[in-house]
Simulated scan of single mutants.
Amino acid sequence: MCLGSPRVSPRRDILRGVVVLPVRFERSPRLHAMLSAEPHAVGTRVVVQGKRGPEVATVRGEASTPSDNGRYGTVLRAAGPEDLARWDDLFRQGEDLKWLLRARARERRLPVKIVAVEFTLDESLVTISYSAEDRIELGSLIADLRNHTRARVNFAAVGPREQAQMIGTLGACGRENCSSNHLQEFAPVSIRMARDQQLPLNPEKLSGPCGRLLCCLQYEHTQYLELLGDLPRKNARVCHEGSGACGKVTKLHPLTGTVDVHTEQGMLLGVPAAELRRMPDAPQGKGKNAEA
Rank of each mutant, 00 (worst) to 15 (best):
D88I: 04
D96L: 08
R104C: 03
R106D: 10
V126L: 04
E133R: 14
L138Y: 02
E118N: 04
I136C: 08
E107D: 12
A105P: 04
R106C: 11
T127I: 12
I128N: 00
E95F: 00
I142A: 05
Q93T: 07
E123G: 07
D89L: 13
F91H: 13
K98R: 14
L97D: 00
E123K: 09
E107R: 12
R109K: 13
D96I: 10
R104P: 09
L138F: 00
A143D: 03
A105M: 00
R92V: 12
L141E: 01
L121G: 00
D144R: 06
R102P: 13
V112A: 08
R102M: 14
A116M: 01
R106H: 12
K113P: 12
L125H: 13
P111K: 05
V115K: 09
E123A: 11
R109C: 09
L97S: 03
Y130A: 02
V117Y: 01
A103I: 13
D89F: 10
E137F: 13
D88Y: 05
I136D: 06
L141K: 09
V115E: 07
V126W: 05
L100T: 00
K98T: 05
T127S: 12
F119K: 02
G139R: 06
E133Q: 13
E137S: 13
E123R: 06
V112W: 04
T120W: 06
V115G: 11
L121Q: 01
S124Y: 14
E107Y: 11
F91N: 13
Y130H: 07
L90P: 03
K98L: 12
T127M: 09
P111A: 01
R106W: 10
E123C: 08
L125C: 10
K113D: 14
L121F: 10
E133T: 14
I136Y: 07
K113A: 14
I142N: 02
V112K: 00
R135L: 10
R104Y: 08
S140K: 09
L110M: 03
V115F: 05
D96V: 11
S131A: 15
E118F: 08
I128F: 03
R108I: 04
A105H: 02
A103Y: 14
K98G: 09
K113Q: 13
K113H: 14
L90D: 04
A116H: 12
A143M: 06
E118Y: 03
A103C: 13
E118T: 10
S124F: 15
L90C: 01
E118W: 01
R135F: 07
D89M: 11
Y130R: 00
R135I: 01
A116C: 08
R106K: 12
R108P: 05
L141Y: 00
A132I: 05
V112G: 09
L101E: 02
L101Y: 04
I128Y: 07
L141H: 06
L138C: 01
A116R: 11
Y130I: 01
E118D: 11
G139L: 10
D88N: 12
L125K: 14
L121T: 03
E95I: 01
V112D: 02
F91S: 15
Q93I: 07
I128M: 03
